[in-house]
Nucleic acid binder design. Structure first.
Lengths: 208, 208
DNA sequence: TTATCTTTGTGAAATAAGTAACAATTAAAT
DNA sequence: ATTTAATTGTTACTTATTTCACAAAGATAA
């Protein structure tokens, strides 16, 4: 862990690592502009972020990939494992779950919850419960982080339950307002507003 | 439609409207600080955004809700309907789909695609096809926007197909790099980096 | 050996995003 | 009629984020 990095830098460091983990293992070094290209950002941005975490590269070969992966881990990962649960998020969860099996991450999917009465598990090694058991399981498993992607009508009470259960952070896809104490980290993602923004910036009939 | 609004303003305007549509219908006016509270932002921010779209409020009653909803539509919506497809996104899609039935939106889910050989539709009125039929359907239906949430191994070829089919914008949840021409709007959302960021900002063992 | 070229590391500059502050306004209370 | 109180609209300010631009370093080629 390192001091107080800007939120955007933390997020980018995580992205750098993900990209590097998928980089051809035959290459040992990468230049700032190569990594920048993969992320569609400016090379100076990369250099600046790495400067912030005191990681230096070689003027000619660039940055050593394995070392950088390790360094990013030292900086953004906590020492212990952090447990996550997914509430009502099937497909998207499956799309990202493969990463959670890598030993590079300190995050672990400890449980999933669904609205159906007797849900079947979507992931091989992760149990899936009905939402009525959330509080019990979250406490028992010491789950700290939570992703919520349920319809409006459920979201409010579910968020209340997970907060009561001791969760420290929520990634909220549900588009409802979550009222939480200041020490709970809430990140809202509203897919519809992203789509409406995308619609705005992709249509031609712009002039009023 | 109106001039060139900052991307973040467009996104917020969309959020304002969503919140207002869910506001109790008995209330006709809302103050900047009330709306700000719902969005966890600063009231001045609201006033600024509404200033940008030339919407004025009443010094005492605040902003007229129905009028504001209309004005936001004039500003960010296109005149015609825009069709969207979801690829490999079941649950999250379902969680947001209810909004697309409202006549306030110009967005319409025209099709969903899944990896399974013979997928069943998740939405009452939307057909679901196997991904092999994407190009055909996207062209036939004139689908312009696309949300991709498939596992890594599929993402690359799917994004290529949808771009070839004429889609104008992609919301990419898949964490793979999408190489697209400049006139295609790509918005990447990486859930894992969000979770890693959340983990960083919610753990106590911060000092190095 | 010398010149050329490329890339890092980083201060400075530029841009974007968000917040504060307050005059102007006017309803409601006195 | 006068005061009080609240809220908008807007300018100025602050902070955050991104990009530029270039010296320093050193490999490679001439």
């Amino acid at each position: 862990m390192i001091k107080d990095l800007p939120p955007n830098t933390v997020e980018r460091l995580s992205l750098y690592r993900r990209r590097l983990l998928n980089y051809p293992t035959t290459t040992e070094y990468i230049h700032s502009h190569q990594l920048a290209h993969l992320l569609k950002i400016n090379p100076a941005h990369i250099r600046r972020d790495l400067m912030l975490i005191n990681f230096t590269g070689d003027v000619h070969r660039g940055y050593n990939i394995p070392d950088l992966i390790v360094r990013i881990g030292e900086v953004i990962d906590s020492k212990r494992k952090r447990k996550i649960c997914f509430v009502g998020i099937g497909d998207l969860g499956r799309a990202v779950a493969e990463y959670f099996n890598s030993k590079e991450t300190k995050l672990e999917i400890a449980a999933t919850f669904r609205i159906e009465k007797e849900p079947k598990s979507q992931f091989p090694d992760v149990s899936c419960y009905n939402i009525s058991r959330m509080k019990e399981i979250i406490k028992k498993e010491h789950i700290e982080l939570c992703v919520i992607a349920v319809p409006r009508s459920y979201a409010k009470s579910i968020s209340k339950t997970v907060i009561d259960s001791g969760v420290r952070g929520i990634l909220n896809f549900s588009s409802v307002y979550i009222d939480a104490p200041d020490d709970i980290y809430i990140e809202d993602y509203d897919m519809i507003s992203k789509l409406e923004k995308m619609a705005y910036f992709t249509h031609e009939d712009k002039p009023e």
